[in-house]
Design a protein around this nucleic acid. Structure first.
Lengths: 214, 214
DNA sequence: AAGACTAGATAGTGGCAGTATCTTCTTAGG
DNA sequence: CCTAAGAAGATACTGCCACTATCTAGTCTT
């Protein structure tokens, strides 16, 4: 199909399709002449995936490129899952310096909290994992706010997080080595977060309303 | 204290403090002269909260303003919780049109899924809730991708979301009408999402590694 | 042969989150 | 008393991002 039809079928403007091409989110069409190319169903599907990852998953164009690169370089199920897991951006990246003493204290306390949690959960993750660093930064910020996230509380959340991860992985890995694996895996790994967040917010709203009704 | 000290203690540049003032995220200091004002501990705390909401919570300046406004207008516990719940932005807002038939089908199917879920969970939320609309949009996108989120699967996630919301609300409401209520509530309601996401990602990483090791 | 498309390159736009500058004023130290 | 060092508030500027538009050269359709 021609680019105008690709645009029509996906609802993505032609200029945006070209932009995604430039940014390497979308493979080139099969060139039939110097100024003409033919696109297929794989392009339609890829554009749908791009839209889902950016609008639903909230990924930047750069992050989407990394994730899609992991999808395209799929070797084995395990390698694919790992690549996607690392390609997904870690929410919480920056931070800044304030009171030096208070900061240093919060930092080391947060590190201890994370180490303790990983120990308690028997999680096998390296200290260098971006998720570990992200969690450390998050706990440091919460400590600065004097928010009460004690170990046992953290463990309660972590247990639920583990349950969710189990649900996700069951689904992501159920497509063993089939060609659809990588795409389904990326959908599950990248989009179950936002979905869960929405469900959590709904559950929160329900409980707030029930409180109000008492 | 003067603005330079406020800046030093929080690590926020003076220009940014002024920016937050302009955007009404931060109350004015107590003016002692035409070009001089005095800031207090409440400003330090507020700046910490702003930083946490924007960096950790990922809120925009506009969303942060709305949330803080809800905090400042705290009346009763219930009203405060409700106001914060609605002030928090719903992840997933936009979408676009593509194939008309497929879209209409996905839309109504998503609406039915959401209605069924709310029924199954016995959630008391109005159809007009932004969370309901957000969830509908999310499910529509997932349908477009042919992702397999059947009702029973959705319910499994929803049950976990409910457990998390219970943990959150227990904490948010434990500060009954104390002056610290609103701030602790906003921390719990706005920041437990990113924290949970980090824990989920860690749990995911752990499980991916264990698979690989088999 | 004309008009509608197209690929790819390059340039422009709008929104966001700051950051910098400018003017007018205050005040502490010499 | 005078002056240098801030400070307040207004306005302007910057950098990044995700598009969006334009331009050139080439192709297909009737």
């Amino acid at each position: 199909m021609k680019i105008s039809e690709l645009s029509r079928r996906t609802g993505v403007p032609v200029a945006s399709i070209k932009y995604f091409r430039r940014e390497d989110l979308l493979p080139a069409g099969r060139a039939t002449a110097a100024t003409l190319a033919e696109y297929g169903e794989e392009h339609v599907q890829r554009l749908r995936l791009i839209k889902a990852l950016t609008t639903l998953g909230g990924l930047s164009i750069a992050a989407t490129r990394d994730v899609l690169a992991a999808v395209d370089q799929a070797e084995s199920t395990d390698k694919t899952l790992e690549a996607i897991s690392y390609a997904l951006p870690v929410p919480v990246t920056a931070a800044s310096a304030g009171d030096a003493d208070r900061d240093a204290e919060a930092e080391s306390a947060a590190e201890a909290d994370v180490a303790g949690l990983i120990e308690a959960m028997d999680w096998q993750v390296p200290d260098t994992s971006p998720h570990v660093r992200g969690l450390t930064m998050a706990l440091r910020e919460l400590r600065r706010l004097d928010a009460d996230y004690r170990p046992e509380r953290l463990v309660a959340y972590a247990e639920l997080a583990r349950s969710i991860a189990r649900l996700d992985l069951e689904r992501a890995a159920a497509f063993d080595d089939s060609p659809a694996l990588a795409e389904q895996a990326v959908i599950v790994l990248a989009l179950s977060g936002p979905l869960l967040e929405l469900l959590r917010r709904l559950a929160q709203e329900d409980q707030v309303r029930r409180r109000g009704a008492l």
